[in-house]
């Protein structure tokens, strides 16, 4: 955790009111909880909202989720640490995920991962000093037909080469936004027999 984050946390702990959710969000949450038999079932959705707000789930976030869902904070920590998509430390604004599972691996996923490591200068679950990027070697993301693939945040990039992946990163560096892949159908050329 860097200094800036620590300062913000302290500020919130001392000055900000008990909840991080606005009144409207609290109403939405209470409607959401009603869709389940027990408030505990809203734990994953609540944690998602917290992570969307601050990029990761800190101790205060866990405390808040515990209060909303009526479970001990220790249980929340157990859940947060179980699921790979919840972060217990700050991650980059753009979380780059590279799949190296079988379908991607045999089509060059590992090379893409190495390129990304070099390109970003960080390793698995690390963050660049400027806080712009973090990197993760992920397991199958369900895009085997588009292997090899990378994802930036929620956006999938399929059938990429190492150069494509580096270009995506470069474009984010230049423009600050994730390039939009266009929806298209791309048929590879047939091999002659």
């Amino acid at each position: 955790m860097d200094e800036e984050d620590g300062a913000w946390l302290n500020f919130r702990r001392i000055f900000v009111l008990q909840t991080m959710f606005t009144e409207q969000e609290q109403n939405e949450l209470s409607l959401l909880i009603k869709r389940y038999e027990k408030p505990q079932a809203a734990l994953l959705p609540v944690l998602w909202r917290i992570q969307e707000k601050q990029g990761w789930i800190d101790q205060d976030g866990m405390q808040e989720a515990a209060k909303i869902c009526g479970v001990p904070k220790s249980h929340v920590l157990g859940v947060v640490s179980f699921y790979t998509m919840f972060f217990e430390k700050p991650m980059g604004r753009h979380h780059v995920q590279v799949c190296t599972n079988v379908s991607c691996m045999i089509r060059g996923g590992e090379k893409i991962y190495d390129t990304m490591k070099e390109c970003l200068g960080i390793g698995h679950l690390e963050r660049t000093p400027d806080g712009l990027f973090s990197l993760e070697e992920v397991e199958c993301m369900g895009a085997c037909g588009g292997a090899p693939m990378i994802a930036v945040g929620e956006r999938f990039f399929e059938k990429v080469t190492a150069e494509d992946a580096a270009a995506v990163v470069q474009q984010i560096r230049n423009t600050g936004t994730v390039p939009a892949p266009i929806e298209t159908v791309q048929l590879p050329e047939l091999t002659n027999l």
């Binding site: 956006r155 892949p181 159908v185």
Partner: peptide, 11 residues
């Protein structure tokens, strides 16, 4: 059969 690959980076 139509191929369903929704998101592809433009080359």
């Amino acid at each position: 059969v139509e191929i369903h690959v929704p998101l592809v980076v433009r080359k």
